[in-house]
Design a binder for these strands. Structure first.
Length: 449
RNA sequence: GACCCUAUCGUCCAGUGGCCUAGGACACUCCCCUUUCACGGGAGUAACACGGGUUCGAAUCCCGUUAGGGUCGCCA
């Protein structure tokens, strides 16, 4: 790895549109990774030159999204820094000054009240960190018109303020989407006219839909804000995003951020557009959830349970339940229905499950008698744990000449109201003897009724 | 239309001239495990866009075609 001699400074410069696109999130992620790798600085700058709508809320979408992904910025909104302000709307004086410089250099002219930059009309060579060497021929004004810097009403155009801010904020590496690739030679002309050394550029491929079409805001998975509420763990989404256009090259799918930071190189980033595959993100989420330590899992779970109105007596009791439920689901959103049976006295029964496992088609009496036998066996237990529950159930099954499953299914439905759930013995252990027996009694009545 | 980028299984990646009858993962199908649902294990379907070169040898290099994407705003 070649260590840059100047301290690395990268930036993420979104405009507050009201949502953070996954493509933008990945751009932020790669900028963050690169800065962390080189012990550099990651700057967040809000490009709000042209927005009148709900900006506070829209800015919050960005900062919330980055926070959620764990991408902490070193300078920017809510944080400050010595190159601020970090909102373009507050940097007018700086832009005026830079415009003055261009004016003095004779680079500007007025066009119907707007201010334009007179291109030097040369060939511009870009040595892109990802795309390699690209030569642009800007000699023809017909195909490459002069860019506008400022509108007649005094507001600023993206190309100009973007370049000025990158100069002012001493950005060394501009890592952004490939949609800016064709704009880059114009930006380079601006740097030169301002007597500034252009930064290194790295243009990342875009993220498209599965069918190759452009991913618009409304496509599933496009807005980062939908992930937290759907029950994705930020570490899983972050991991998935790393794998979109980059690879650790050893066939790993799950990779820690510290490993990504250690292995990441800009010139290893793919040049090909990537299609977004929510199914893989979903799978990765399941992997993360399964392997996550209980404390972290509980932390992520609590908001979902609170939102569903579920309450629990103690943190320990909650952890007990989450521990047996944790290996089962892939989306935190599903948690309430799995957890509810443990923290409610009024069980809601799944009718289909009751019909199938308790009433059966013509074996209602059988299910009831089995539950009764099981209740008696359990009542006699002096220790209430997975091992003794399993032993007692199997013993009872043998006595009745029934298959294990023929006791398990009624027991499951009677104790939880559902046909799916954690392992039966784990579930009963956590439920406790008293509640188990009373639910069995209710189950018996239901089977007969 | 002009300019720019790209082109390996349906999808994400590996592959940087011989180790490739192309590897991993997701998804899908089947089997095993199993008290449900998951997990896990095993097997399978499935790709170098096409055409020319270069080379003893090409998925890998070059050219062309085709296809996809991007840019060409007084949007960012």
């Amino acid at each position: 790895m070649s260590q840059p001699s100047v301290p690395v400074r990268t930036r993420f410069a979104p405009s507050p549109t009201g949502l953070l696109h996954v493509g933008g999130a990945r751009t932020a992620l790669f900028n963050w990774i690169y800065a962390r790798k080189h012990a550099g600085t990651f700057v967040l700058r809000i490009e709000d030159t042209d927005h009148s709508r709900n900006t506070e809320e829209a800015k919050k979408v960005i900062t919330d999204g980055l926070h959620w992904l764990g991408l902490d910025w070193d300078e920017g909104p809510l944080k400050g820094g010595s190159y601020g302000p970090y909102y373009q709307s507050e940097r007018t004086a700086i832009y005026e000054e830079y415009l003055g410089r261009l004016e003095k250099g004779g680079h500007l002219y007025e066009d119907n009240g707007a201010i334009r930059f007179r291109s030097p009309r040369e060939k511009v060579v870009l040595q892109d960190e990802i795309c390699g060497r690209i030569e642009f021929d800007l000699t023809n004004p017909g195909t490459h018109p002069d860019i506008t810097l400022r509108r007649p009403d005094g507001s600023w155009i993206f190309h100009f303020v973007n370049v000025v801010d990158d100069i002012e904020m001493k950005i060394t590496h501009v890592i952004r989407g490939e949609d800016h690739l064709s704009n880059t030679p114009k930006h380079i002309e601006l740097y030169k006219a301002l007597g500034a050394e252009p930064p290194r550029f790295a243009h990342m491929p875009l993220i498209l839909n599965r069918d190759g079409s452009k991913m618009s805001k409304r496509d599933e998975g496009a807005a980062l804000g939908t992930y937290p509420e759907a029950g994705y763990a930020p570490e899983a989404v972050r991991n998935y995003l790393c794998l979109l256009g980059w690879s650790p090259k050893d066939n790993r799918e799950m990779i820690s951020m510290s490993d990504v930071i250690a292995l990441f190189e800009l010139n290893q980033v793919n040049r090909r557009n990537a299609a977004f595959d929510l199914a893989k993100c979903f799978w990765l989420n399941g992997q993360y959830l399964m392997q996550m330590d209980l404390a972290r899992y509980t932390e992520l779970a609590i908001p979902f349970l609170e939102k569903a109105g579920i309450t629990w007596p103690t943190y320990e009791s909650l952890e007990q339940v989450l521990a047996i439920v944790k290996p089962k689901l892939k989306l935190l959103k599903e948690l309430p229905e799995w957890v509810a049976p443990f923290f409610t006295e009024e069980l809601s029964y799944d009718e289909a499950a009751v019909a199938k496992s308790l009433k059966g088609s013509d074996q209602g009496a059988t299910a009831a008698s089995r539950l009764k036998a099981l209740s008696e066996a359990f009542k006699a237990l002096t220790t209430w744990d997975v091992a003794s529950l399993e032993a007692a159930l199997k013993e009872t099954a043998a006595k009745l000449g029934a298959k294990t499953g023929e006791l398990v299914h009624p027991a499951r439905v009677a104790s939880s109201g559902r046909s799916v759930g954690p392992g039966l013995y784990e579930m009963l252990e956590v439920l406790g003897k008293e509640r188990t027996l009373s639910r069995f009694a209710t189950g018996e009545a239901k089977a007969l009724g």
